[in-house]
Design a protein around this nucleic acid. Structure first.
Length: 244
DNA sequence: AGCATTGTTTCACA
DNA sequence: TTGTGAAACAATGC
């Protein structure tokens, strides 16, 4: 369930392992750990201590006294602590010197585990300032939703948050960035930040009023059936009456 | 059976 | 050249 709010929750949970030493690593899922060979990540990490945890967008960075461990949850990844490492869907795990474990559970295996990740990400959605956001989003000829989903522009916004923010800002997801005026971009910027913050408070993306309504197919403000189409390659729902 | 899925990368094309 | 969008990736659930 990972968009920025879920990943940030994982970051907070990871704070508990700071200061622990890595005793063993399970890196034998060659798809999730690609392009590293089985044992390669383990060899690089064993014996090192976790010294910090950072997040940019949906990317998690675990600093150690050795390499940086990069974690990405893909579509279905999540972290578990102090559970057995042989459970179904365990794709990667770390055991610490205190006997505790960190397990990456990821049924669909679209998550990634890498050493020293090279990031090509834009500014984090929670940190980007208004003028920068307006400039980056407002200069594109792509549908505004596709622009929001582009992690190289603003990092952390996924499909649900994008729909949520556009609904709050009352903007049609199919409109081109260049066709939005300054006031609309201001609204969108505020809507993005509010959507992210609310999702974090609610414990996840898609738990908002619109997130619930998105499934039901009815706009929670005016009861109009939501429109649905592929925008930016993703299923998109919006209120055809309010979002212009 | 068929289709959709809260993500990212690659590749074809304008 | 730059940007855009569809397909591929893997696996599950409806």
């Amino acid at each position: 369930m990972p968009e920025l709010p879920e990943v940030d929750r994982a970051r907070a949970a990871l704070e508990r392992v700071v200061g622990r030493r890595i005793e063993a690593v399970g890196d034998h899922d060659s798809f999730v750990c690609r392009p590293f060979a089985p044992g390669e990540i383990a060899a690089a990490l064993v014996g090192h201590e976790i010294v910090g945890v950072r997040r940019t967008g949906k990317q998690l960075l675990v600093d150690t006294t050795g390499p940086v461990l990069g974690l990405h949850f893909g579509m279905s990844g999540s972290l578990r602590f102090d559970v057995p490492t042989d459970e179904r869907f365990t794709r990667f795990w770390v055991r610490f010197d205190d006997g505790g474990t960190m397990v990456l559970r990821d049924p669909r295996r679209l998550g990634r585990v890498v050493l020293d990740p090279v990031q090509r990400l834009g500014e984090d959605a929670l940190l980007v300032d208004g003028p920068t956001f307006r400039d980056l989003v407002g200069r594109s000829r792509a549908p505004v939703k596709a622009r929001l989903l582009d992690q190289a522009v603003v990092a952390g916004i996924g499909n649900l948050l994008a729909d949520e923010a556009l609904w709050r800002a009352r903007i049609d997801p199919r409109r081109r960035g260049v066709d939005l005026d300054r006031a609309e971009l201001v609204h969108l910027y505020r809507a993005v930040r509010a959507s992210v913050r609310d999702a974090m408070a609610a414990g996840g993306s898609g738990r908002s009023r619109f997130g619930t309504a998105r499934k039901a197919g009815v706009c929670p403000r005016d009861g109009v059936p939501l429109a649905s189409a592929k925008v930016g390659g993703r299923t998109t729902r919006w209120c055809p009456r309010e979002q212009r």
